[in-house]
Computed example of a mutant assay.
Amino acid sequence: MPAAPMLTPGEVSMRAGIAISALHFYERQGLISSIRTAGNQRRYPRDVLRRLAFVRVAQRVGIPLVRVREELERLPGGRTPSRRDWQRLSGAWRTELEDRIRHLEQLRDDFTSCIGCGCLSLRQCALANPGDALGREGAGARRLLGPLQTDQR
């Protein structure tokens, strides 16, 4: 039985819609792997396309690449994720995504109430000082720049 044809970085790049530099980055991160030819050129197995799709979808919803790599490493024999794997992981990641959405909605609501205050009321500002956290540390300024530092904003 002949070996499955391998893909060049250019072929993977074109089919997956990502830059070759991204392939190299994903490889350095341990998300995909290649073999080297006798001429030291990278070649990828065809299933790298599914792996890349898995990585890109997870990344698009905000899953850190470290977590994606951890999940890929749990697959037996380094196999490509299946539909069942995605269902299992997406269920767990959905909870995280919903938590982040709630957090962003709270930031949005706090930001809306903050507009116009100019952060002159640090006791009440929900963004600069949520729940007057700085006030619990005692009286006086808490966020001063050092003598050699400047505000980069």
Rank of each mutant, 00 (worst) to 15 (best):
A128G: 12
V68T: 06
S113G: 15
A58E: 03
Q59S: 14
S90C: 06
P9I: 07
G140Q: 07
H103Q: 13
T95F: 04
M14A: 13
L97T: 05
V68S: 02
P64Y: 02
A4Y: 04
G135W: 10
Q106F: 02
S121V: 03
W86E: 10
L72K: 03
R51C: 06
L72R: 03
R94Q: 09
F111D: 00
R43W: 01
R67G: 03
Q87V: 00
R102W: 08
E11P: 00
G131C: 05
R51L: 06
R136L: 11
P64M: 02
D132I: 11
P147Y: 09
R88F: 03
T112M: 12
Q152R: 13
Y44A: 01
Y26R: 06
S90W: 08
T80R: 10
A16T: 05
T37D: 11
G62M: 07
L120E: 13
R123Q: 15
V57E: 11
I20M: 13
A139C: 01
G91T: 14
R102L: 14
R94L: 13
H103Y: 10
G78P: 08
L75I: 14
T37Q: 12
T8Y: 04
R123I: 12
I20N: 09
L122P: 10
E70L: 13
R153P: 00
R88W: 03
V57C: 10
A141I: 01
T80C: 15
G135C: 12
P9G: 09
V68A: 04
A92T: 12
P81F: 07
D151R: 10
L144C: 14
Y44M: 04
V12E: 00
P64V: 03
G30W: 06
R42M: 06
G138P: 05
F54W: 15
A92Y: 08
Q29T: 06
C114E: 11
P81W: 04
T37P: 12
P81C: 11
A19N: 14
Q87R: 11
G39T: 12
F111H: 10
E70A: 15
G116A: 09
S13W: 01
E105W: 01
C125P: 02
A128K: 08
I35V: 15
S21G: 10
R136F: 05
Q106S: 09
C125E: 02
Q87A: 06
R79C: 04
G91R: 15
C119I: 07
L49N: 05
Q59C: 05
A4V: 08
P130T: 01
G91W: 09
A128L: 13
R50T: 13
M14D: 07
A22E: 05
A4R: 13
L144H: 08
R50S: 11
D47K: 04
S82A: 11
R15Q: 14
C117K: 12
Q124L: 12
C119E: 12
P9C: 10
V68W: 01
P2L: 03
R94K: 07
D47W: 01
R60M: 13
I20W: 00
